[in-house]
């Protein structure tokens, strides 16, 4: 591992000031991504600023409803917080399915949003990779791409975003609060994830030194019946082949509100907006679900080893919506 300098920050301002003035520095929270990637040589930071002492770990109900989750709240603490389980079960489920107990005790919510892709070519520190070494090419396009994305890809990068909880957060229109060298700002979570396009090395609209301090999830009745399904080769401790966050509001047999997002198939945590648009107002039937799923995956760009995910993702969506019907918030005569 490369030599590292270390600074333990006592205040947010100090942490932001330190990282923003040191070009090869980074924040260190749970370390589950950062320490791994520095050891691999993929992350080339010289200074890590330890932010674990900052008072950013609280999970609070917001006055107008909704939840504010501190950036340093650990995955396990959020997953088991009563208000999360009650108001946003899909978040809790996604967190619990997202990593081992040990990792969930370490990894923070802010760090989770910023975790890096698991593409083997990115991680091997040798193969051409536009994300790691811009301009060198994408080895996955014509390589081993079973785990790679089919939505939101570009010819420069097809790496899948690995987060589970971010899938739930994009479905619920969470917002990301940051403090950076230019002050505080609020970023809607969908804007927080940038498609790879021509610049796959730029994953977030964050300035260097800009720190995530909290994630806010708005009040959302539909989320009370939300559900996160994750399909993977192994029963546990693996990233998704495909995952689905689904939540429905149904009135008189028709869908009045739906939240649908996908993991494992997108270069970002994928809000299935096409499917959602088609579902709102439609009868809550298998036919509607299948048609919406087909519409969403119509845009898929397939490669040699991941082509099966187009069909797989559709089936997963239908499964997710089917199961969400059980827990859906129903109104009117059923």
């Amino acid at each position: 591992m490369r030599p590292l300098s270390y600074r333990r920050a006592a205040e947010i301002g100090e942490a932001v000031a330190t990282v923003s003035t040191e070009p090869t520095s980074a924040f260190l929270a749970g370390g589950t991504t950062e320490v791994d990637l520095v050891r691999l040589g993929v992350a080339r930071h010289d200074l890590l600023v330890d932010i674990n002492d900052l008072p950013l770990a609280d999970i609070e109900n917001l006055p107008g409803g909704g939840l504010r989750i501190g950036a340093l709240a650990r995955m396990n603490d959020v997953a088991r917080a009563a208000q999360v389980v009650e108001m946003y079960p899909g978040i809790a489920q996604a967190l619990l399915l997202g990593a081992s107990e040990q990792l969930r005790n370490m990894a923070t919510m802010g760090g989770n949003l910023c975790q890096r892709v698991r593409c083997a070519y990115f991680r091997d520190n040798v193969s051409p990779c536009n994300k790691r070494e811009p301009g060198t090419g994408c080895s996955a396009l014509d390589g081993q791409n079973r785990g790679h994305a089919i939505l939101g890809t570009s010819e420069h990068c097809i790496a899948t975003h690995p987060s589970d909880v971010a899938v739930a957060l994009v479905a619920f229109d969470a917002v990301v609060h940051t403090i950076g060298p230019s002050g505080a700002r609020i970023i809607p979570i969908e804007n927080f994830y940038l498609l790879p396009g021509r610049t796959p090395h730029i994953e977030h609209p964050l300035e260097h030194g800009e720190l995530i301090v909290a994630i806010e999830v708005p009040p959302l009745p539909v989320a009370r019946g939300s559900l996160y399904l994750k399909f993977r080769d192994r029963q546990s401790y693996e990233f998704a082949l495909v995952s689905v966050l689904s939540a429905l509001l149904v009135q008189d047999g028709r869908i009045t509100e739906v939240r649908l997002a996908l993991g494992g198939v997108g270069t970002t945590p994928w809000r299935a907006r096409r499917a959602e648009a088609q579902l709102v107002g439609a009868p809550a039937t298998a036919g509607s679900f299948a048609a919406a799923a087909a519409a969403e995956l119509d845009a898929a760009v397939l490669h040699e080893h991941n082509a099966f995910k187009q069909e797989l993702a559709q089936r997963a969506i239908v499964r997710g919506l089917d199961q969400a019907m059980v827990s859906a918030v129903h109104g009117g005569a059923r």
Binding site: Y6, R8, L28, V35, N105, M106
Partner: peptide, 13 residues
């Protein structure tokens, strides 16, 4: 008191 992975923890932290 919480189980964590020592390989991904820097000792200084």
């Amino acid at each position: 008191g919480r189980r964590v992975l020592a390989c991904l923890s820097l000792a200084v932290t």
